[in-house]
Simulated assay, not measured.
Amino acid sequence: MTVAGFRSDLRAWLDENDLSPTNDRSRGAELAQVSRVRRALYEAGWMRYGWPAEVSGLGGPALLRAVLGEEVATRGLAEPGAYSMIEVLAPTMISYAAPELAAQMVPRLLSGAEHWCQGFSEPGSGSDLASLATRAVPDGENWVITGQKLWTGLAQFSTRCIVLTRTAPGHSGITAFFVDMDTPGITVRPLRTMHGVDDFAEVYFDEVVVPADRMLGNPGDGWQLAMDLLPHERSTCFWHRGAHLFTRLDRLITQTSATVGDAGADAELGAAYLALHTLRCRSRLTQQRLAGGGHLGPETSIDKVLLGTAEQKLFDTARDLLPAEIELTDGEWRTEFLYSRAATIYGGTSEIQRNIIARRLLDLGKE
């Protein structure tokens, strides 16, 4: 199936099958809508394209997944961040889990039967991931995990979690596990962000027993797993996010139509468009690299910097051109403006990304 044919057939199917969300914008309702959309797309086969047969996929290039996510985002069918987590966690499971575990679990994620999260950041170990302290110690045929994770996205709604632990000193002493969130000893405490949503949570592990066959890869593979996971977070996920942001730009242009012709307003809208278009061009190159079987690495830090810049520019423009809309109302513009403040933090801060670009892409050394 060609990409163009896939897109055309998908659009026709979406036109005939109403997956529109309700007006309930609570986090629980949004997650239920994500599950509903994934389930419908999986049962119709669309969600299975671009994934290997070993996890019940229908094959084809990964670009098909990008097209699907773009259509979901532009039609406003599902919250893009939650929907896009499949692009972060499913490839990790396929690459690192035992084949039988991946075959059992990945379809549950793709079909909307489950939500998953990733337990990486800790108090004092956010951008400095290598300093994490949550430990795992062997106990017969099991491992016992003790520690705390912070800023774990959607943990309170998740069935499983990919958790990084320390099993020895240094980068080579980090090991990943695939943990059931209902395991005794796990406590989840939601965190309310400034945009009024429980997006994140603290997760406590108090001598949590995990079977050895839930280890992802081998002992010490956790750092490499994280380095492989993060570029995926900055590839197809960003394609989805960019598509969503373009819909917001279209809405902004519509709402500010009365000011069109005003040189200042036109300049701001043009700058926002240019930032988004630059992100899209860069993201397209990343998608082509992924579709061609290329390895994603530190170059995706460029994508991350461009996303943060474009997202904040768009919502700064909305603040400037929609007087009092953000400051004095509780509508979607206010919520998304506040969320955009995190765009230069989530997925790795812009400062860290620029360091990666300087050191690993431009070979500028450590100074």
Rank of each mutant, 00 (worst) to 15 (best):
Q148L: 03
Q148S: 03
K149D: 04
K149M: 04
L150D: 00
L150G: 01
L150M: 03
W151K: 01
W151D: 03
T152Y: 09
T152S: 03
T152R: 00
T152L: 06
T152N: 11
G153E: 12
G153H: 07
G153V: 06
L154E: 00
A155P: 03
A155M: 08
F157R: 10
F157V: 03
S158I: 11
T159V: 09
T159Y: 13
T159P: 08
R160I: 12
C161E: 07
V163H: 00
V163Y: 03
L164R: 09
L164Y: 15
L164M: 05
T165S: 12
T165I: 15
T165R: 11
R166C: 10
R166E: 11
T167Q: 01
A168V: 10
P169G: 03
P169V: 00
G170M: 04
H171W: 12
S172Y: 05
S172D: 11
G173P: 02
G173F: 11
G173S: 06
G173N: 02
G173M: 09
G173R: 09
G173I: 13
G173H: 09
I174E: 03
I174C: 07
I174T: 10
T175H: 09
A176L: 11
A176R: 04
A176C: 14
F178E: 10
F178R: 15
D180K: 15
D180Q: 14
D180L: 15
D180V: 13
M181G: 15
D182F: 05
D182C: 01
T183Q: 08
T183P: 12
T183E: 00
T183A: 07
T183K: 11
P184N: 01
P184V: 02
G185M: 05
G185H: 04
G185P: 01
G185F: 04
G185A: 04
I186F: 07
T187W: 02
T187Y: 08
T187F: 05
T187S: 02
T187V: 06
V188D: 01
V188W: 02
V188T: 03
V188L: 00
P190L: 14
P190K: 07
L191P: 10
T193S: 08
T193M: 12
M194V: 06
M194S: 05
M194A: 04
H195F: 09
H195W: 15
H195K: 08
G196C: 05
V197E: 10
V197K: 05
V197N: 06
